[in-house]
Design a protein around this nucleic acid. Structure first.
Length: 546
RNA sequence: GGGCGCGUAGCUCAAUUGGCAGAGCAAGGGACUCUUAAUCCCUAGGUUCAGGGUUCGAUUCCCUGCGCGCUCACCA
């Protein structure tokens, strides 16, 4: 724990004013001294199909709070529960082998075969996809698969306690239900050992023994809870049981869990009445919406946008920054359209602000907020010293022009910026390459047409006469006189191109764009010409003069 | 019916636990004898949905109303 009398600690304390810092303080305030020295924060979802960015909000929320807790001196255990012992209730659209999946409904998602035939099960397929996408983001929780826990009998005592308290649980749940649970209700759920389906009726003779009969295949069996098996608690009891089992002190939840009478509400009552525990500190997070993917949605995944889809367009730190900048309760959208440019500009600006030295003015507050947000957004934990140099990366917009001139060649794109003196060392080369890769994927898949161009592969011959011919001739001469000219060298020639003719650059340029990029406008002409180089430009311009 | 959230410039939104209402785009003007998908400077734009309360001070906290969205009352 941090010593509040320590001067630097209290100075530091003023900086810890991000929502994750406040949540961390609340969580620390909720524990008493008798608790374990290590504190547990938790996230978790059901892998019932492709895991999307909306689900990511849960993990990133906990990751940010975990980092905030560590910054306050806590020893943190971050667990991620894969609720893969849940029922496969619905076949998502767009998956392969829909008939096979249809036949596997009502079984545990951990027992449904992988329709892609790549992993041991349906659940594991989507689990490994999602876990893989967390690696570049620096998120590394301890993953727990509930199917394994239940089957190993880890929760035997928790289940037995629920059975012993079944009447209390029934009353708690009934207070929030329209149709009350029957008097003989048992807090049990599970799957038939024979057919794997969840159409099972339970009986509890007492102690550790549970018996069931399958309504589907009429299989009957008796299970000793201590040995584990296909028996679990229903969600509303399962959640509080695991809070107590893991001593979770912070866990967020989506809106569906968060309303009055929802599962957090009943869980809070159950954990206290049955397990003599305490509900974790909680934040409810809102949904993440998607903008600008119209017509580009991958048919194999329905309407779903994954974390990997976001990483295709956004740098890892930037994706973290986007979530760290939004308070959990507010709904926001992740954009794939022209907003991407604006967002990159906002991000670069905020990062410069985060690194600025303080000057005692009121702007310091904004600097502190930006700094703290970037400390939390950083892929690996870091402290930002005011006045320290900010990472240097060329603007996304500039990269979009250059990377298209080089047809997606990242190395040439990077060396272009090196030649311009905007990229200096290996770190900057790496950052530039990473951004160029994102940019190129964006241009190809999502950019609106007005941001895209393609240099002609073969020259087109236009009839060029009169003043247009004169000006084009001058442009060609200018390029020849500057075989490896920089943009600065070319600019003076541009100013003289139209002298003595009826044309202006505005009326001439469409011809040049047509010859070069097959449309009547494009990136700033001098940038385009010097980026593509005379050796590519001249063969496209000259044929129309012959 | 219960709960949560939202309502701020023409548009999209900030204001991070009460401290001079701000950005981007759009609009208008100017600069760089370099086209735009630019860059830089300036201007304008507001009863912060309405009404009340707490406070030295409210976009922020409390109450009421209106409008919008989501969610629970199945399962998870």
């Amino acid at each position: 724990m941090m010593d509040p009398k320590d001067h630097t600690a209290t100075e530091r304390g003023k900086d810890l004013s991000h929502w994750a810092d406040h949540a961390a303080r609340r969580a620390l305030g909720s524990i008493d001294d008798s608790g374990p020295s290590e504190i547990t924060v938790a996230a978790g979802i059901t892998p019932s199909g492709v895991i999307h960015v909306g689900n990511f909000r849960e993990v990133i929320t906990v990751d940010l709070v975990a980092r905030a807790l560590r910054d306050q001196g806590a020893d943190v255990r971050f667990i991620y529960s894969w609720d893969d012992f849940d029922v496969f209730r619905k076949v998502p659209v767009g998956l392969p082998a829909p008939k096979m999946l249809e036949q596997n409904l009502r079984r545990s998602v951990a027992d449904v075969p992988d329709p892609y035939d790549e992993h041991e099960s349906y659940a594991v397929h989507f689990i490994s996809q999602f876990e893989g996408s967390l690696v570049p983001l620096g998120i590394a929780p301890e993953f727990i698969r509930q199917s394994e826990r239940y089957r190993a009998g880890v929760y035997a005592a928790g289940i037995r306690k629920a059975l012993e308290s079944r009447e209390a649980i029934r009353q708690i749940l009934n207070r929030h239900r329209t149709h009350p649970l029957p008097e003989d209700w048992l807090p049990l759920a599970g799957f038939c050992d024979a057919c794997g389906q969840d159409e099972v009726d339970f009986c509890w003779p007492g102690d550790w023994k549970v018996e069931y009969r399958c309504r589907n295949c009429e299989h009957e069996a008796s299970v000793d809870l201590r040995e584990g098996g296909n028996i679990k608690l229903p969600w509303r009891v399962d959640w509080p049981m695991r809070w107590a089992h893991e001593q979770v002190i912070f866990e967020p939840g989506g809106k569906d869990h968060s309303s009055a009478g929802g599962s957090y509400d009943t869980g809070r009552e159950i954990v206290s009445a049955v397990y003599h525990g305490k509900a974790p500190e909680y934040v409810a997070y809102d949904f993440v919406r998607i903008k600008g993917r119209g017509g580009k949605i991958s048919s194999s995944q329905g309407d779903v946008v994954t974390v990997q889809d976001c990483l295709d367009v956004y740098e890892p730190e930037m994706l973290r920054w986007i979530f760290a900048s939004q308070r959990p309760g507010s709904e926001f959208q992740i954009s794939f359209d022209a907003d991407v440019i604006k967002l990159y500009e906002d991000y670069d600006r905020a990062r410069r602000l985060a690194h600025e030295a303080e000057d005692g003015s009121k702007a310091d507050k904004k600097r502190r907020i930006a700094r703290r947000t970037f400390e939390l957004a950083s892929v690996s934990p870091c402290r930002i010293e005011p006045g320290s140099p900010a990472p240097v990366v060329p603007p996304f917009r500039a990269i979009s022009v250059v990377v298209q001139a080089y047809d997606g060649d990242l190395e040439r794109t990077v060396s272009h910026f090196e030649t311009l003196g905007e990229v200096h060392d290996e770190t900057q080369r790496m950052l530039c390459r990473e951004r160029a890769a994102c940019c190129w994927r964006w241009v190809q898949n999502f950019a609106p047409d007005e941001f895209r161009y393609r240099i002609r592969k073969e020259a087109v011959v236009r009839t060029v006469e009169g003043d247009h011919r004169i000006v084009l001739q001058r442009l060609v001469e200018a390029l020849k006189s500057l075989p490896d000219g920089s943009e600065a060298d070319l600019v003076p020639h541009m100013k003289q191109l139209c002298e003595g003719t009826e044309l202006t650059l505005k009326t001439f340029c469409p011809l040049a764009y047509d010859l070069l990029v097959e449309r009547d406008h494009g990136p700033k002409l001098t940038t385009l010409l010097t980026t593509m180089g005379s050796e590519r430009a001249l063969p496209l311009l000259e044929p129309s003069l012959e």
